[in-house]
Amino acid sequence: MKREKGATAMKRLAAAFGIALIVIAAFQASGSPYASKARSLVERTVGTAVSTVASGGLQAEYALVIDAETGKTIYAKNERERAYPASTTKIVTALLALELGKPDELVTVGDEALPEDPEESRAGLKPGQRLKLYDLVEAALLPSGNDAARTIAVHFGRKAAGDPQLDEDAAQREFAKLMNKRAKKAGATNTRFVNASGLHDPNHYTTARDIALIAKDAMANKLFRQAVRATDYTASTGAAGAGGFAKAAWSNTNQLLQPGSAHYFEGATGIKTGFTDQAGYCLVSSASKGGKSVIAVVLRSTSKDVYPDAKKLLELGLGTAGDPAATKS
């Protein structure tokens, strides 16, 4: 039998998920002695991982898991609907920095590092400091430093405009143009970025599918993969024109990577956390096992469910990635 194509296969998979959910929920709700048999039947029909997601459910409003190599969709929930990305925005910020600059080039921190929001996540950067670009990327990714993201934006926004004296706000607008161009290159057709950090703006949005495609491109970059996989990182920072350097240390906010965390996931390889009141709890994650690699997206989940949601998707993806039943939408 030939492999089913796109929409038809996706409809069949969606129907399988629906059947799994209805069958398991009905038997469990009624307390039927046949509940375990129903689960066994569902697992034989559509797979153990599918049964787990169907019965356990996802709290995330938008979710997606794809094969990291082929981009094929393994599971999707409202994946084409607009959502706020929060700090998962920094995936494209970091990717652009690594594509446009050199890891060892020095970047001077300016007033853009000053807080825009009293509760924003920060790496602790101060105007006048100088960091290597790669260190700045880690500062944006690991502690989710908005100050680092804005510093990247100003640095490359000025380069794009050809004006090293361009004011911080104008430079950040120039960088947002680069972000949107890069998103489109990745295939993200329903995404618009207006800042490098992910601070809420009603005109700053994406979809689960778009951010997955951006993450897929990012994970193809060796330095990006290295950056998002780090559990901790120490950088040297110095003042412009001054001798001597101080140390700055950051830990990764992604608990899937932290061995001491209750949310640790063996095989996790990244990628980025996010939160704003409007976006809810967000997590773009990745994992590899047995030669399979997947990327999972969780948008607008809750503080207690964001990691369980991500782990369910990763488990599902690693169980079916590369399988002919995995479909491309």
Rank of each mutant, 00 (worst) to 15 (best):
A94M: 12
G145R: 02
R150Y: 07
Y84C: 10
Q165S: 15
R80K: 15
L95D: 06
L114R: 13
G56S: 15
V137S: 02
K159M: 14
E81P: 01
G56N: 14
A161S: 14
S144P: 05
A86V: 11
D117L: 02
V65K: 06
T88L: 14
G162T: 10
V109M: 02
S87M: 07
D147H: 04
T108S: 10
V137C: 04
E61D: 14
A113L: 03
L142M: 09
D135Y: 04
G110W: 06
P85Q: 13
L106Q: 15
L96Y: 07
A60R: 04
Q165F: 13
R80N: 15
E81A: 15
L136Q: 01
H155E: 15
F156L: 10
K102C: 02
A83Y: 08
G157V: 06
Y62H: 15
G162Y: 12
Y62N: 14
V92L: 15
G110N: 04
Q129V: 00
T73K: 04
V154S: 03
N78A: 15
T93K: 12
E119H: 07
R150L: 08
E61N: 13
K132L: 00
L58S: 06
D163V: 12
Y84V: 12
G124S: 03
P127H: 01
K77Q: 15
S144L: 02
P164G: 10
L166V: 11
G162V: 12
Q59G: 07
L114K: 14
P118M: 02
E69L: 13
E112P: 05
E116A: 07
Y62W: 11
V65A: 08
A139S: 13
L125T: 00
V154I: 06
E105V: 08
L114W: 00
A149H: 03
A63W: 05
V109S: 02
L58K: 09
E116F: 09
P143W: 04
Q59D: 14
Y84G: 09
H155I: 02
N78I: 08
L95G: 11
L136R: 02
